[in-house]
Amino acid sequence: MAQKLSTSIVNKWKGHLNQMNALQEYLDQNGVTRYQVAKQTGIANTTLANAVKETKPLSGQTVKVISAVAQTLGKTPSQVLDDLIELDEDNSK
Results as ranks from 00 to 15, higher is better:
Ser59Tyr: 10
Met20Ser: 13
Leu73Pro: 13
Leu48Arg: 02
Ala22Lys: 12
Gln3Trp: 05
Asn11Phe: 09
Leu73Met: 11
Lys53Pro: 07
Ala68Asn: 09
Asn50Gly: 12
Gln19Leu: 13
Thr47Gln: 06
Ala44Trp: 04
Leu5Ser: 14
Leu5Val: 15
Leu23Gln: 03
Gly42Lys: 04
Ile66Leu: 00
Gln71Thr: 15
Met20Tyr: 03
Thr62Ser: 06
Gln71Ala: 03
Lys64Glu: 05
Asp28Pro: 00
Leu73Ser: 13
Pro57Asn: 10
Leu5Gln: 15
Ser6Gln: 08
Leu5Tyr: 15
Gly42Asn: 06
Ile9His: 04
Leu58Ser: 13
Leu48Ile: 03
Leu73Asn: 13
Gln36Val: 13
Gln71Phe: 03
Ala68Val: 03
Thr62Asp: 02
Ile43Arg: 09
Ser8Asn: 12
Lys53Ile: 00
Val10Asp: 11
Pro77Gln: 02
Thr46Ile: 12
Asn30His: 15
Thr46Ser: 07
Gly42Cys: 01
Gly74Leu: 10
Thr62His: 03
Gln24Val: 00
Thr7Phe: 07
Leu23Glu: 07
Tyr35Ala: 05
Val80Ile: 12
Val63Arg: 08
Asn11Asp: 08
Gly74Arg: 15
Val69Met: 11
Lys12Trp: 12
Gly15Lys: 07
Ile9Arg: 10
Thr62Gly: 00
Lys12Ser: 11
Asp28Val: 03
Glu25Lys: 12
Trp13Gln: 09
Gly31His: 11
Ala22Asp: 14
Lys64Phe: 01
Thr55Pro: 13
Lys39Val: 10
Val32Ala: 14
Thr72Phe: 10
Ala51Tyr: 07
Thr33Gly: 02
Thr33Arg: 00
Val69Thr: 05
Gln40Ser: 09
Gly60Pro: 15
Glu54His: 09
Ala22Glu: 11
Lys12Ile: 01
Ser59Asp: 13
Tyr26Leu: 11
Glu25Thr: 04
Ser8Phe: 10
Met20Thr: 06
Val10Arg: 10
Ser59Cys: 09
